[in-house]
Structure formats: structure tokens, C-alpha cells
Amino acid sequence: MPYSAILFDLDGTLTDPKLGITGCIQYALSELGYKPPDADELHWCIGPPLKDSFSQLLKTLDDAVIEQAISLYRRRFATIGLFENFLYPQIPEILKTIRFAGYKTFVATSKPYIYATQVIEYFGLSLLFDGVYGSELDGSRSIKGDLIHHILLIEKLLPSTVVMVGDRSHDIIGAKRHHIASIGVTYGYGTEEELKAHGADLIAHSPSDISRLIISNSK
């Protein structure tokens, strides 16, 4: 069955959020009395749920400590970090191409919905998506598989007609959980090895590859 709906991860797929995310993690760790790693050592935190990243960074499973770190992170992110972000080249153009070809498009991000919608609006992309989906501030639906399940239900999408596009393993894992196709992008923060190891069906090395792969594989 041809594809009809495309789910796009946000961080590392549509935008490069390195400056904002790493800066906010460094701020949170500093406020907690830790010496934060350099920004280049925090690339692995871009994409996965914040709770998981802080648990590893702080070497703890203590929810209270992790929630304190997330609260500090959001204190800076909500006003500064959110906008320390850049669109990857050609993103508006490839989204227009995909929509012009008749596909529905959705954002599917582990980032809280309240922030994801602000990012999409900030870059003037709102009209290029049929919906923006993210996690809740309490952490629910931050696991990509849970989020995809939610989108499939709300939008009444058949798994066989959906493609997930993302740059990290959890995007591919979430797609596999619901038997939907996946495109791993290598220009973000995951490697081709990571994406292939978790079963990405196709690999895009640039944003323009995404529209080409989707349209050519729907014929």
C-alpha cells in the first residue's frame, strides 16, 4: 500500500538544536553543582527523552533529582534555548515537495508539545504540517513508540501507509514497534551504523534525499 502520511522527528531531523539543548543541559548541571561536559560531548543527549539523558549524566535513578535537573533545564530553555536553533538546509522546500505530492505530514517529537509548536511557528513551518505531536510536560509520550501509537489513533492512520523520519535509534525503534516504515537521516545526531543496527528501512544523507526516497518508494 502506498505511503500517505509522514511523521517527522524534530531535533536533528528538521532543525539543529545543538546550541540550545547543550546550553540548557550545561546550565542545569552547573546549577546542581556539577561541572558540565563540553557541548560536543553532549551530542548523544539530542533526541532521546531528557529524563534518560539526565539519569545518565547524573548517574542516578532518583526521580526527584532528575526532575530537578529537568526543571532547571526548562527554566532556560523556555526563554532562551528554544530559539538557539537552526533549520537544516532545504527543509521548507522538501516539506512543500512532499505535501504537493499529496502526503500528510506530522511532527512526532519527544520534545514537549508546548515547545515543539513554538519551534515550528518560529521557523514559519506551521502551514506545512497537518499536526504537531510531542510529549507532555510530565513525561508522558516522551517514548517515541508511545507517541507514534497516540498519533496513529488520533489521526486514524493505517501503519502500512505511514513512514517515520528521524535521526536516532529511538525513532527507528518506535517505528518498528508499530510496524511502520522508517527513514534514518545521517545529517543529524545519529550515525548510519546506529540507524541501520536498529532496522531503518531507508537512509537519507541529506534533506533532499527524504522527499526522493518517499516519493520513489510510494510508486
Rank of each mutant, 00 (worst) to 15 (best):
Q90N: 14
Q90P: 10
I91L: 11
E93L: 13
I94T: 08
L95G: 15
T97M: 09
I98V: 10
I98A: 02
R99H: 13
F100N: 12
F100I: 14
A101T: 14
G102M: 06
G102L: 05
Y103V: 08
Y103N: 05
K104M: 04
T105K: 03
F106M: 07
F106Q: 06
V107D: 01
V107K: 00
T109R: 01
T109G: 02
T109S: 11
S110C: 00
P112W: 01
I114G: 01
I114C: 07
I114R: 11
I114S: 07
Y115T: 11
A116W: 02
A116E: 03
T117I: 13
T117G: 02
Q118A: 10
V119R: 09
V119Y: 07
V119P: 07
V119C: 03
I120G: 14
I120D: 08
Y122G: 14
F123T: 12
G124Y: 06
G124H: 08
G124N: 14
L125N: 09
L125Q: 09
S126Q: 13
L128P: 10
F129E: 04
G131D: 08
V132F: 00
Y133N: 05
Y133F: 10
G134D: 01
S135W: 13
E136R: 11
L137Y: 01
D138V: 04
S140H: 08
S142D: 05
S142W: 06
K144S: 06
G145Q: 12
H149M: 10
H149K: 12
L152G: 07
L153T: 09
I154E: 12
I154N: 08
E155Y: 02
K156I: 04
L158H: 14
V162P: 15
V162Y: 15
V163E: 03
V163Q: 05
M164T: 03
M164L: 05
V165K: 02
V165M: 03
V165Q: 01
V165E: 02
V165D: 05
G166N: 02
D167E: 07
D167W: 08
R168T: 05
H170K: 00
H170N: 05
H170W: 00
D171H: 03
I173N: 05
G174Y: 14
G174F: 12
K176M: 05
K176N: 12
R177N: 11
H178S: 06
H178R: 02
I180F: 13
I180N: 13
A181T: 15
S182D: 03
S182I: 00
G184P: 00
G184R: 01
V185S: 04
T186I: 15
G190I: 03
E192Q: 06
E192D: 05
E193V: 10
E193I: 10
E193W: 13
E194W: 08
L195N: 07
K196L: 09
K196V: 04
A197Y: 10
A200T: 02
I203V: 11
I203W: 12
